[in-house]
Computed example of a mutant assay.
Amino acid sequence: MTIRLGIVGVGKIARDQHLPAIAANPHFDLVAAASRHASVDGIASFATIEEMLAGVPDLDAVSICTPPGGRSDIVRAAIAAGKHVMIEKPPGATVSEVVALEQLAADAGVTLFATWHSREASGVDAARDWLADKQVTSVAISWREDIRVWHPGQDWILGPGGFGVFDPGINALSIVTKILPTELSVESGALHVPDGRESPIAATVQMRCGNGAPGRVDLDFLQTGPQSWDIVVETTAGTLTLRDGGKTLSIDGKGAAEGGGIDEGEYPRLYARFAELVPSAGRDVDLRPLQLVADAYLVAHRVVADPFEF
């Protein structure tokens, strides 16, 4: 089955990850794009999803790569047109809007795939399998990257609903909610919000595992030099460490493969999963990472940080 695909939102993440992954997957034929300020060479390009759906009515599916704010209306338009939908993370600006979208997709009989690309990093499945029968005693997440490198000039990310440092931090939460044999809950935290901005540029969050083990999340959007995306899970049987955003796995310091940045296979694996879901109109929507971020906003206290400009 060849899936005629349209993409909505042609920004950095679409060009860096989505377009190459689509081109490499024989199940997809990218035939249209919708973006306010960009286009894709060689295919029909439109300013809005409504124009795209009207101009290319025989699309089978839509991949949505816009920022989370305002995305709900885009997804709704695609579902109303009977299109299967894949969504870049985070799946929406609020938990409730994604719950509603999942029901709309079910009622319409179309796929809704809320993606978490970091779950597709090469060390994640092996980490989940090793932890499956282990007693967790603590979890530590350290996610530090440079906002100017990954989101150059993107003021929306520090605005209302932009997620701030939780935009990368939710990647870590997507991994731990997949690999841990216990649920997580948020207990307290501190959100460091630059003066004049609305979303945090750094955060610390204290969490608790279902078995009572403590968890801590440290997020920083001002890391310069080498970037670091690390998860350490202590258990009664040893220490599991995931580095490089889930790419490099070691147990008690042994078995680590060479790291070196984000796993280039993450997005190809997402599109392979989307291609599996479409023929049966299956849905894959896990909201646990988004729920943890929402809980952090509810219970953490706000700290005014220094002003920030790109």
Rank of each mutant, 00 (worst) to 15 (best):
I262A: 13
P194W: 13
P194M: 14
G225N: 11
K178W: 08
G259C: 08
E234K: 07
A203T: 01
R197P: 05
Y271S: 02
L240W: 07
G169I: 05
T235P: 04
M207C: 07
L222P: 02
Q206Y: 11
T248H: 03
F163W: 14
A257L: 15
G261P: 02
A190P: 05
G210S: 12
R208T: 14
T235R: 05
L249Y: 04
L242H: 01
G169W: 06
G225S: 12
I231N: 00
F221K: 02
I179D: 04
I175M: 10
L240N: 01
Q206L: 13
L222I: 10
V233D: 06
R243K: 13
S185H: 07
M207K: 09
D220P: 04
K247L: 04
W229L: 11
G212M: 10
L180V: 04
G164W: 08
I170C: 10
I179R: 08
R269M: 02
S185K: 13
H192C: 13
E187W: 02
L191P: 03
L270M: 14
L240M: 15
V217K: 00
P160A: 14
T239M: 04
L249R: 05
T235C: 11
R208D: 10
L242W: 01
H192W: 15
V176K: 06
G253K: 03
D195R: 15
R208G: 05
M207I: 01
Q223V: 05
Q206N: 12
A256E: 14
P168G: 11
E198P: 00
V193F: 12
V233S: 09
E266A: 10
E264S: 12
H192F: 15
E198T: 11
V165N: 08
G189F: 04
D167F: 15
P194N: 12
E264V: 07
G261C: 04
G210K: 09
T236W: 02
G261L: 01
W229G: 01
W229F: 15
A237C: 01
D218I: 10
P168Y: 06
K247S: 08
N171T: 01
A256L: 02
